[in-house]
């Protein structure tokens, strides 16, 4: 389990990253925390000719507040999110999800940008970003563009990132006083990728996003189920659960077939209701 030969550059500023991306195209990979990339190199599942290490780039660091949002630099580690008072105050769903992400050693190095750009459909953060309607800030040499989470994830390890573009930051709306949220996942062992998980947020009455992960090729927003709950409150739970089959189109994996996932999706939804609905 040794990686095939590859080149390595520690980039000092974003311009250098864009130069290298332009020069090497698909052959180059961005190295952030390396918690998915390095194993995939050692397993020889990925064989880039160049790793562009962006860890030293200050522009991509840090968590900062604006009046209505929290902007998280792509290089922010899981452990930094976990310990951030800004996150725990204003993006509680994210704070609730952190302890479920792998193990401390991985959280020490893994980054939010790395996780989101990798787009593993079983990972927690893509679903959290979806539930929170986060905005992804993508940059290339010439411009910055903003993409909603619902548009960012295209499929298994596929995102809206275009050649020459990197994920620079993620912007989360600050929770309002009427904000409600729920996070739960079912993993056979703590820290594993979940058999299924639910990141749910209701920024205000009448709005609800139910983002499931570990169920399809990307985080899936269960819109029909949410509609039932918004309309009927707790009374809509049976209809909501019944509509999950259409919402999720779940596919199976080693630990759970599609039926099991669907069943568990409903269990998670029922259990989340008291946190999500004022009346439940």
């Amino acid at each position: 389990m040794k990686a095939p030969p590859f080149g390595y550059v520690k980039a000092r500023e974003l311009g250098q990253v864009f130069d290298l991306l332009e020069q090497h195209g698909d052959e180059a990979k961005i190295l952030a925390g390396g918690q998915s990339l390095i194993p995939s190199l050692n397993l020889r599942l990925s064989r880039p000719t160049l790793l562009i290490d962006i860890n030293a780039i200050a522009d991509l660091q840090g968590i900062r507040e604006t009046a209505d949002t929290v902007v998280v630099g792509a290089l922010t580690t899981h452990v930094a999110l976990e310990k951030s008072p800004i996150i725990s105050r204003h993006v509680q769903l994210l704070a609730a999800a952190m302890p479920h992400i792998a193990h401390p050693a991985i959280r020490n190095r893994g980054t939010i940008g790395g996780s989101l750009a990798f787009a593993d459909p079983a990972a927690e953060l893509p679903a959290c970003a979806t539930a929170l309607d986060a905005t992804f800030i993508l940059r290339n040499r010439d411009q910055e563009r903003r993409v909603k989470a619902s548009e960012f994830f295209h499929g298994l390890f596929e995102t809206d990132l275009k050649p020459g573009e990197i994920l620079a930051a993620i912007e989360f709306p600050k929770a309002t006083t009427s904000h409600r949220f729920a996070f739960s996942e079912l993993a056979r062992r703590h820290g594993d990728y979940a058999m299924i998980g639910l990141a749910a947020a209701s920024p205000q009455l009448g709005m609800l996003r139910l983002a499931y992960f570990g169920v399809a090729d990307r985080p899936v927003s269960a819109e029909r189920a949410a509609t039932h709950l918004i309309r009927d409150g707790a009374a809509g739970v049976e209809a909501a659960c019944a509509s999950l089959a259409d919402d999720l189109e779940s596919s199976g994996d080693l630990n759970a077939g599609p039926q099991t996932k669907l069943h568990l999706a409903a269990v998670l939804l029922r259990r989340a209701l008291p946190a999500l609905l004022p009346s439940a």
Binding site: G252, G257, Q259, T260, H263
Partner: peptide, 8 residues
């Protein structure tokens, strides 16, 4: 009996 059979 909560899940009937393993498919896929």
């Amino acid at each position: 009996g909560r899940v009937s059979a393993k498919v896929g």
